[in-house]
Each structure stands twice: as C-alpha cells, then as structure tokens.
C-alpha cells in the first residue's frame, strides 16, 4: 500500500500564486492522471512532490503539506536524495547525463544502491529493453547526447523505472513519441503501476482514460490553480461537474470539431485572472 496525500498545498513563487489549496489523497498501486491546461502548475506540483522546489530556490513559498505514507516529504530529517529514492521523477524535459546510453541508466543505480555491477547491468539492460531503445540503437555505448528526442525520453523513463521507486512521477512522458511508442509507453506504465503508484501528468485525455484509476483536473483560479475535479476515472470522465473540464474532455477525446479546437487554444492564451468558466459555458452552448 502506497499512500500519497496533498494537504491544502498552496505554492507561490515570488508572491505569484501558482497552486491554491490542493487537497486530495491517492492510495496505490495504480495510475493517477493529472490533467489541466498549459501553465496551470502540473509540473510544479510534481516538482513539489519530489521537493525540487525548496531549500535551493528560496523564492518559493509553501503552505500545506505533502505526505508520503503519512510522513511529510518536506521533513528536514529526510534528505532530498533519500526522498528521491522513494519517489522517482521523470521531468517534462529530461536531461541526459554524460556518457553512454547504458551509463545513463546505470549511473544512478551505481550511486544509490548497493547492487553488484552485474546486477546493475542486468537491471539497466532490462529497463532499456522494456522501453524498446535497445532494438533501435546499434549499440548501447552510443553517447546519450546524440539520441533523438523520443529516444532520450524513453531512456529517461528506463533510467527512472530501473531505480524501482515506490512512487513514480511522470511529466508528459508521451511527448515526442510516435503512436507506436505511445502504445509501448502505455504498457510500460501499466507494468510499473502494478506494484507502484504512478502520477501521470498528461495532455492525452485518451491515454489518461485508459490508464488511470483516478483522475484530477486543475484549472487556473484567482489565487492560483485549483483542483476542480478529482475522483475515479469513470466518474470524472462520464460525469464531469465543471464545464471547462467537460469541454477539455470532449476536445481531448476528439468529440468536438476543429473550430472549437481553435477556440480553446485561443482561450488558453488568456491570463488566469480572466474568467474562463463563463465563456466555456458560452462555447458549449453553441450547436
């Protein structure tokens, strides 16, 4: 049982509110999909979960808490590297480390576990095979900096799952992947989520619906983004309460036409201060 709980988490960066009273709890294993428009703070929420927005970046102000199995991830007794060994994180734009593809996957294993070199090699090879990088490259000794975008994305996934964290935060992992690779990714996430809790940030409504046990939507509000919808996948997708979420789901599932797509694209450019809910009703009211 893995439990991740957000308790009234609010975040400000240099007094600009980003997240407003985020409050929910998920019990793993399984996939939790977090959706919402661009710039609402999904990545920020993930970074906060791995404590990437603290100590070093003094311009962040936080209130509320994030609990992993009942213990605060911000506890000073818990080192950041110790936390990262429980909670894995694949950033939206993963950075390749120095050295080869294989070295990229082996590196963290080597420095964060006590496994033997052989065991590390076995785990790394298995992870790389799982994301289908092995078959694509002539050799795993290829410099990681020379990978294509989609290959690097998958190496980053392999690197994180090889470490076997109990919670895995994935920030738009399907970026830069072709439909075949998205299908593969889906399988990888399914496998990972069998025993672990996966928090998946994605814009892919269809993927989220297929994978997730729970879904959450965050939308911009006056004091930062709020979690406007949260619950079991079926419930949220079939009976969304919030009109914007309703439209988001419809658009994402390809149920609305192209012109409507343009409309929401234009509206997403607006600042959070503008009341997006009101004109969402308007658009939905159109035939």
């Amino acid at each position: 049982m893995i439990q991740l709980e957000y308790q009234n988490l609010s975040l400000k960066s240099d007094n600009v509110a980003i997240l407003d009273q985020i409050n929910f709890e998920i019990d793993g294993p399984g996939v939790f999909a977090l959706l919402g428009p661009s710039g609402t703070g999904k990545s920020t929420l993930l970074r906060a979960t791995q404590r990437m927005i603290e100590s070093d970046d003094t311009h962040w102000q936080r209130s509320g808490d994030i609990l992993l199995n009942g213990k605060s991830v911000f506890a000073s007794s818990l080192g950041r590297h110790q936390l990262a060994r429980q909670i894995g994180y694949i950033p939206q734009r993963p950075r390749m480390l120095h050295g080869s593809v294989l070295a990229n996957v082996e590196f963290a294993l080597k420095h964060t576990t006590r496994l033997s070199a052989e065991e590390i090699r076995t785990k790394a090879l298995a992870a790389l095979a799982e994301v289908d990088v092995t078959s694509e490259l002539p050799t795993l000794d290829k410099a990681a900096s020379e990978l294509s975008g989609g290959q690097a994305q998958r190496v980053a996934i392999a690197r994180a799952i090889a470490l076997n964290p109990s919670v895995l935060l994935m920030d738009e992992p399907s970026t830069g992947l072709d439909p075949f690779k998205v299908q593969l990714l889906e399988q990888v996430i399914r496998n990972t989520a069998r025993l672990r809790l996966v928090v998946l940030v994605t814009h892919d409504v269809v993927l989220a619906r297929r994978l997730a046990k729970w879904v959450g939507f965050i939308l911009p509000g006056e004091n930062g983004s709020r979690l406007v919808e949260f619950g079991a996948t079926e419930q949220v997708f079939d009976r969304p309460q919030d009109p914007v979420v309703k439209e988001f789901i419809a658009l994402g599932s390809g149920l609305l036409g192209d012109t409507d797509n343009l409309d929401i694209a234009a509206r997403e450019m607006k600042t959070p201060e503008q009341d997006t809910r009101a004109d969402a009703d308007l658009i939905l009211a159109l035939p």
């Binding site: 590297h81 894995g88 993963p94 950075r95 963290a108 964060t112």
Partner: peptide
Amino acid sequence: KQCVALGLT
C-alpha cells in the same frame, strides 16, 4: 536537478 531527481547526493 536531473541528478538530484535520480536520488544522487
């Protein structure tokens, strides 16, 4: 940041 995310000291 990437290294920290991977659990390195």
